[in-house]
Design a protein around this nucleic acid. Structure first.
Length: 444
DNA sequence: GTAATCACG
DNA sequence: ACGTACGTGATTACA
């Protein structure tokens, strides 16, 4: 395929060979709207080559470091396992939630009325176990063993096996046609869920390194892109104002909900406001919020009511999205990408509510996906145009990771920042944070 | 093959 | 009265 600036891509098929002309006829008949056509011709078609180049490029990892880490984790795992067997009085398969549940709730009787999964087994999820952490020594050990075992098997032991013999790098696949919202997915191996939240997880992220000493990794993150998208789509004046003034959105939200000055907001209040902000993106309920915070259901309801009083545009926007979906049967992103919602008029409350949450979430998540995809296409073109040795390696939904040649650091940083921040024009600024490092962890 | 769990945005 | 936050992929156990 020719290398074409994105603005010309719409005309590509009609200007080119007969085959493309025929294909365009076929597609245009299938595509329902100009928006859907734009998504197809201006985003999904040109990004094929971008993703293909990223997959072929691959990313370098430090396998010997991971092997060393495996030994360290293995020691800790064995120690924890012994503790757990001692405390439970018998050996069992720790990987079996069924066996673990029987030990905790039949044998040790940690609770009188254990929570069960939908198949009737005792639930031993992280959420359930954490709530029991104070009741018995064994719980802490199990939780620690679980998280470490996860890291060990999913990442530390597996990633070195994914390194190509030919290139010495890991080549993930970026899938364009998996998600319902327009996001990419990644598999074989999934490089969109590399750990970062825990200390041990961060040790794994350190294993991702530049190709050689003349390069560094660079991570470019959209700051709060989904909240910026919803602020812009809803046109809520207060949320727009916060982003235009470049304020900390969670602190501002807390100050509004609790009716105090931003300077008086406590850590806990900011944390609750953050949870509400995320909840809004997902189509929050009072119950859902109370599950995610230390708030009761009624306190959660007050929080949400306060939230919508202070961001009135969001409330009307959310109802209008649901109305739109009911009338048309789909919702759409800023670029016109559609998600059809079969169940939006269902008689079944639960099913209909689920569709309503999708009606709210899909345009937000999907618009963010549109935006980063447009940025990726333009960055890819610019890198080619300037024959840069630096390469785009990974996309993690709101983040792009690059292998950057030392001489090109300033240039690449400027291209990436400008392109990402100007990918689309919203009613709020887009903000991108960029950092360099000698591994992926340092680049954050 | 399905369920449970947990890693990420 | 009822069940409930959005989107993914990998691993393991077990029928």
């Amino acid at each position: 395929m020719r290398d074409i600036p994105i603005d010309e891509v719409t005309n590509y098929a009609s200007e080119d060979a007969d085959l493309s002309l025929q294909l365009k006829d076929i597609f245009d008949k299938e595509l329902e709207s100009n928006g859907v056509k734009a998504v197809f011709y201006d985003i999904e078609t040109p990004i094929i080559n971008v993703l293909s180049d990223m997959e072929k490029e691959g990313i370098n990892i430090d396998s010997s470091y991971l092997n060393q880490l495996e030994q360290e984790f293995e020691k800790d795992l064995n120690k924890l396992k012994e503790e757990i067997y001692n405390q439970s009085g018998e050996e069992f398969n720790l990987n079996s939630p069924k066996q673990l549940g029987d030990i905790l709730f039949d044998k040790l009787k940690l609770v009188s009325k254990p929570k069960k999964t939908k198949t009737g087994q005792y639930s031993t999820s992280e959420e359930v176990l954490s709530s029991l952490a104070n009741d018995h020594e064994i719980i802490r050990s199990i939780l620690e063993w679980r998280s470490l075992d996860k890291l060990q098997n999913t990442y530390v032991r597996s990633l070195p096996n994914e390194v190509s013999n030919r290139t010495n790098k890991i080549h993930t696949k970026f899938n364009q046609t998996v998600t319902t919202t327009g996001r990419l997915s990644s598999n074989n191996p999934n490089l969109q869920n590399i750990p970062i939240r825990t200390k041990n997880g961060q040790k794994i992220r350190k294993a991702f390194i530049p190709r050689n000493n003349n390069f560094e990794l660079m991570a470019a993150d959209y700051s709060q892109i989904e909240l910026r998208v919803i602020a812009s789509m809803s046109k809520d004046p207060n949320m727009i104002d916060a982003f235009i003034k470049n304020q900390d959105i969670h602190t501002i939200t807390a100050s509004k909900i609790y009716n105090i000055n931003p300077a008086e907001v406590t850590r806990e209040q900011r944390g609750n406001a953050k949870t509400v902000n995320f909840g809004i993106i997902y189509g929050v309920s009072a119950f859902g919020l109370s599950q995610q915070t230390n708030l009761s259901r009624s306190e959660s309801k007050v929080m949400i009511d306060n939230y919508f009083e202070n961001y009135p545009g969001l409330k009307t926007y959310m109802s209008s999205q649901i109305d739109f979906a009911r009338n048309k049967g789909y919702v759409e992103t800023i670029m016109g990408r559609r998600r059809y919602l079969q169940n939006i008029n269902s008689q079944n409350n639960m099913i209909r509510s689920g569709a309503e949450r999708n009606a709210i979430n899909a345009p937000i998540q999907g618009s963010a996906a549109d935006i980063i995809k447009i940025a990726m296409i333009r960055i890819h073109n610019e890198f080619k145009k300037q024959s840069l040795k630096s390469k785009m390696l990974l996309q993690v939904h709101d983040e792009l990771v690059f292998d950057v040649r030392n001489q090109e650091k300033e240039l690449v940083k400027e291209i990436v920042k400008n392109t990402m921040e100007s990918a689309v024009k919203l009613d709020v600024p887009l903000k991108v944070d960029i950092e360099f490092g000698k591994n992926w962890l340092e680049a954050h």
